[in-house]
Design a protein around this nucleic acid. Structure first.
Lengths: 229, 229
DNA sequence: ACATCCGATATCGTGTACGAACGACCGCGA
DNA sequence: TCGCGGTCGTTCGTACACGATATCGGATGT
């Protein structure tokens, strides 16, 4: 059946399913904690269950869903501690990346990155802002010539994206992030590795602080607030 | 204790297939570059092809195999640069882990780790030595209370294990690694984070040096030494 | 009468078998 | 020698059967 124009199938269906699910998770269409039933997804995309399973596996590898054997897949819902851990790891990783980037940073790349910051400043749509944000960081690290490192960073960023999205959607992006980005870039241009790393630390720390504050509204007397997971 | 990270469960056959393949890759039974045909593997384990595919996906996520769409899976063969990159990333990650471990290190754990070093010193079997080596590092980092970080480190270690195995199998383990382990542990006991991190750096750097030297026999006029991959 | 425990049923994930699609290889022809 | 088409092998996708797990209802005991 599904005899679709094969031209667009340049990817395997498992990949396209994974891609669409990833988008839906990251922009909040699928909230953390949602249970993903493979039959339902398969029907929804007009495919069979096997590629859906493969897609689940991919997403699990990326940390976006969790699969409990014989029980199914749920959209991953990290705890506040998990998020803090992610950010600490990212501090170490992005610190290394920016250190390696600095000596190889080309002027044209600087211009490029600067343009990205400007564009972010003019963007109000959360989804677009997030995409630009990711693009800025990944492009910034690409001159380091360490593709695995960049991939790891990308994964970690993806894992917390749903929450950042919720946060950014709730209150406007704010200028602070833009200032911090500018500070990072300036330090890189100046060739000052220590300053750039410090700026990254500050950037990530403030983001983590915001996020945790956002996730844990002041008084939550433990209890079974969210029994999920 | 620290059982396998994500989904280890002898329950589903996909996991057991993945586990056995992982072992075979890591101890060299399956050399890097080998093409894995799902029918063959399925027959060999007496299962169907679907769980084999799932197993491939898991191993790809761990960086042990590479899957090209419509072409199949091959055991991953990192280049020398890839290995160097892994080790640089590990320096950052393990550095962070040991820093977080130090304030929480319990005396009994120290005794435990010390025992592991002794056992390694008495071990000549490469496979056993490797297993103890991994165990030492992962146990050392476990008090940090950062499970994701430990999982990342474990993945990176796994990715280079096949090569370390080849190296260790070719020439006896040597005492240097043991001395370095001892130095790391001593610094931790002394509560000297900086010294511990320096020791880790030294440990990883010397390992990386050995590995690269082993992979690239002296005179190789660049060229297409190993066109693989 | 209420709560608890237990068992039948339904639902969903897992594994098997088969057909379809794609890429690789070989031989034929110009 | 180089390009082209056919054939084969392998992977990818589908449909179905099995098994495990969760849910709901009923029976039992206090």
């Amino acid at each position: 059946m599904a005899r679709r124009p094969a031209t667009l199938d340049r990817d395997t269906t498992a990949n396209v399913v994974a891609e669409r699910l990833r988008d839906e998770i990251q922009d909040g269409s699928l909230e953390p904690g949602t249970r993903l039933r493979q039959n339902e997804i398969a029907r929804r995309f007009g495919v069979s269950t096997t590629p859906v399973r493969e897609a689940f596996a991919q997403l699990q590898a990326e940390g976006l869903v969790r699969i409990d054997p014989h029980r199914g897949a749920v959209v991953f819902r990290p705890t506040a501690e998990d998020l803090l851990e992610f950010y600490e790891i990212r501090e170490a990783l992005e610190s290394l990346a920016v250190e390696r980037t600095i000596p190889r940073l080309q002027p044209e790349m600087v211009k490029d990155l600067s343009g990205l910051i400007d564009k972010m400043q003019r963007t109000t749509d959360p989804r677009k802002w997030l995409r630009l944000n990711d693009e800025f960081h990944l492009r910034l690290y690409s001159p380091a010539g360490m593709p695995r490192l960049v991939a790891l960073i990308e994964n970690l960023r993806d894992a917390s994206t749903p929450y950042i999205y919720m946060f950014v959607a709730s209150r406007p992006p704010g200028d602070r992030a833009n200032d911090e980005h500018r500070a990072i870039l300036d330090a890189c241009v100046a060739g000052d590795a220590a300053a750039a790393q410090a700026a990254i630390h500050e950037h990530l720390r403030s983001a983590a602080r915001d996020l945790v504050r956002f996730l844990e509204p002041p008084s939550d007397g433990d209890g079974a607030g969210t029994a999920g997971r």
